[in-house]
Each structure stands twice: as structure tokens, then as C-alpha cells.
Design a protein around this nucleic acid. Structure first.
Lengths: 218, 218
DNA sequence: GTCTATATAAAGATAGAC
DNA sequence: GTCTATCTTTATATAGAC
């Protein structure tokens, strides 16, 4: 279910790999190339052919490493989610408001070279998955993991501030993620429409709500 | 620049139209059919052919009434936006917290038969437009109108509560719209992941922020 | 304005040779 | 595993008859 890719060196790649031989090598290169092509063209705009070419392979090679374009994207998604989850776990253990704000502020850059495009791309795939029940299940499971991890951070934050956590920290996590996703979309369409610091200011609103004991918004 | 469509009756349509003859008639039927097909298949999944067939016409007829699929969608969008703007103007004049909450709660149903799908569809087109500068400009202008209208509602709300309005009510409007968009996406992927009343609860959070005088989140 | 027929193009995916 | 070549499908859009 969870394709890897993170066991392999994804750098320029003159060096000999000690394990997994060339199988993972090609796969890793395709993943790497797909990140670039996806970020340039979007999910629908990116063709398997261009991804394969960019990686220096043919379509045939692509299809012997991935079932489909969807499958490829899920593999890419897993890499990003794993990174996010690890960061959230660290954050949950050592919770503080400044650390939390910094986490959010630096999310894009932490996501690698194409981090700025990632939220957009992710939304595109999200909407694509909505029309495809199988994909929707797979994606929903991954999102639930992210939501739960963020909820744990919120609980840690509450504890650190001496506040009782909201009954359903996951709901607050949902709202925070929603603000982030929504504002990213607005910025993408028109960067002038939204001040760059609005995401952080909105977040502060939630922190204030937590510290005021109104975290459950009721 | 702004295609119409709103001068014509879009209901079942047995009645005789008094003006614009049959030209608008076909156009209106295509618009009507497109709303159904778009909501079933999404923006990318909907083909011009199916839309034309559903309306009882051929592709040729379609292309003599619309420049392209993008053009069609923009026309549809304008209808919805006009409706939203009118509702917001009414709300701005007679502001009250209950009226505001009701406005948000009933937004989907107010949007017609396919209202539930509209937010999803709109997001899909949004992401499509991001990759196309011309479209992006057109869509951004429409969004800005919506944002400004909501900002006026917020200002009315502040006045009615005896609070000074935030310096940039539009920013608060952006955040509110972002929450709404983001939560709709989460619900669409997995209805179980998000309680149905979360959008309203999140909204209450902002109302509380306004009434506490922290509307500018600073 | 509308229709049928078609041009054009590009996509995802597969077959079979190496 | 990888390549070349191809299958198959489907899309947007147009041409020309009526």
C-alpha cells in the first residue's frame, strides 16, 4: 500500500547503490522528475510521457515501475506526508506557541524545491480523488493521519499553556488546515489579494481562542 | 468580457420567451445542462459533447454559442456570483449575527439544484485557472467582488454590534472564505472526517473574535 | 443557428523485441 | 527492466451542408 522511494538516493546519482539495485534507482528518478513536472504543469497537465522523458526514460519504463499516474502521485504524496508527520511528531513532544507558528510559517520551504507548488498540486489531486472512490479512500486515510498528528500538537500546546484541551482537538485541526488550504488557493490565484502574513495572523486567532478557553468554539 | 445568460429564463422552459428569441434559448439550455454535467463529472470530466447532447444539441451548436469550455464555465460562474452578490448586498444592509449565520448555513441550498457540488466545482476551476493567466485574471476579479461584498457585511455586523470594524475587513473576509472552502474540500473527500456543523462553529469563532475586538487578529 | 462529419491532437496504457 | 512502436480512446475544435 505504501510505496517507498525514500530508501534510495535521489541525488545526481553517479554513485553505485549498495542495495535494491537499479530497480529502485529508476523509480526514484521518476519520482524526482515527476515532482518537477507536476509542479510546472499541475496534475492534469503533467503527462506520463513528459515525466518519463525528464527522468531520462521511456513510457515503458514508467509503466514497469508504476501502475498509473495516480499511483505515481500517491507515492510522491507518501514521501511528503511522511516528512510532515515526522515534523509534527517532533512538534507535539516539544510544544510551544513560537515553535508552532514557525512550523506553519516554514512549511513550504521544508517541503523541498517545489514546496510552494505542493499545496496547489495537492488540492488538485484532492479534487481528482473526490470523483474516484478508490482514490478517495486512500487519500482520506492519509489526511486523517495528518489531522490526528496536528490534533496531538494542539493538545500539547494546550497542556503547555496550562489549558484543558478542546473535547475534539481534531475539529480544531480541521479548521486550521482548512484556513491554510483556502488561503493558499486565494494567494495562488492572485497574490495581491491576500497579505502574505495573513495565514499566520489567522493562526494567531486560533491560538488566542485556545488560550481564552474557547477552543471548542462553543 | 462578461457573458450573460441571466436575462433568460433557465427553468424547464416551455414558455415563450419575449425577447432575445431563440439565440438566448439555446444558450440557456446549454448552461442548464452544463450545470448538471459539471456537477456529475467535474470540470475536467465533463465533455463539451456530453453537455451539448444533454441539452439536446450538437457540438456545433455549442461552439456557435460559446467560445470554449472555459468560456461556458465562466458564464455559469457569473450567474452564481451574481446571485451571491445580491444576497450579500441584502445582508450588508440588514446585518445581524443570526442572519449572518443563516446566510452561511443555507448557502448551498440557495445555489440551486447542484449547490452542494458547486463549491467543489468552483475549486476545480480555480485550480485550472491558476495555470492559465488570462483565466486567472477573470476569475480573480470575480473573487475580489465576492470578498469585498463579504467585507461590507462584516463592517455592517461590527456596526450593529457597536464595535469598530477591523482595519482591513477584507482580510477577515478572506479567512472566512478560506475556512469555508477548506472544510468543504475535507467533507467532500470524507464526510465522516468533519462534523457537519463545524463550518458554523468555526464561523462563531470569528464572530467572537469580532465582538471581543480582536477582529484584526493582532 | 444548427447539423453531420471530420480534422487534429494528445492522452493513458500495452505488446513484443532486446 | 527498458525500449520502440502502436493501440485505443477521447477530447477540443472546425468545415461545410442545410
Amino acid at each position: 500500500m505504501a510505496p517507498t522511494g525514500r530508501d534510495f538516493v535521489i541525488t545526481s546519482g553517479q554513485q553505485r547503490l549498495t542495495r535494491q539495485e537499479s530497480r529502485g534507482r529508476t523509480r526514484a528518478r521518476l519520482l524526482e522528475a515527476s515532482a518537477a513536472v507536476f509542479s510546472e504543469r499541475g496534475f492534469y497537465g503533467a503527462s506520463v510521457e513528459e515525466i518519463a522523458e525528464r527522468a531520462g526514460f521511456s513510457k515503458g519504463a514508467f509503466y514497469s515501475n508504476f501502475e498509473s499516474k495516480d499511483d505515481l502521485f500517491l507515492a510522491l504524496l507518501d514521501d511528503r506526508i511522511d516528512a510532515d508527520l515526522r515534523a509534527l511528531e517532533v512538534l507535539a513532544e516539544d510544544s510551544s506557541v513560537p515553535a508552532f507558528l514557525e512550523f506553519v510559517a516554514t512549511r513550504a520551504s521544508r517541503r523541498g524545491d517545489y514546496g510552494e507548488q505542493w499545496a496547489l498540486l495537492s488540492a488538485e489531486f484532492w479534487l481528482h480523488a473526490v470523483r474516484n472512490p478508490e482514490l478517495a479512500n486512500k487519500l482520506a486515510a492519509r489526511q486523517q493521519a495528518g489531522r490526528a498528528a496536528l490534533a496531538r500538537v494542539i493538545e500539547g500546546l494546550c497542556a503547555q499553556m496550562g489549558r484543558k484541551a478542546p473535547e475534539r482537538a481534531e475539529d480544531l485541526a480541521s479548521v486550521i488546515l482548512a484556513v491554510d488550504d483556502g488561503l493558499v488557493l486565494q494567494e495562488a490565484l492572485n497574490p495581491n489579494a491576500v497579505p502574505g502574513d495573513l495565514r499566520l495572523r489567522a493562526l494567531l486567532l486560533f491560538v488566542q481562542a485556545i488560550s481564552a478557553g474557547h477552543a471548542d468554539a462553543e
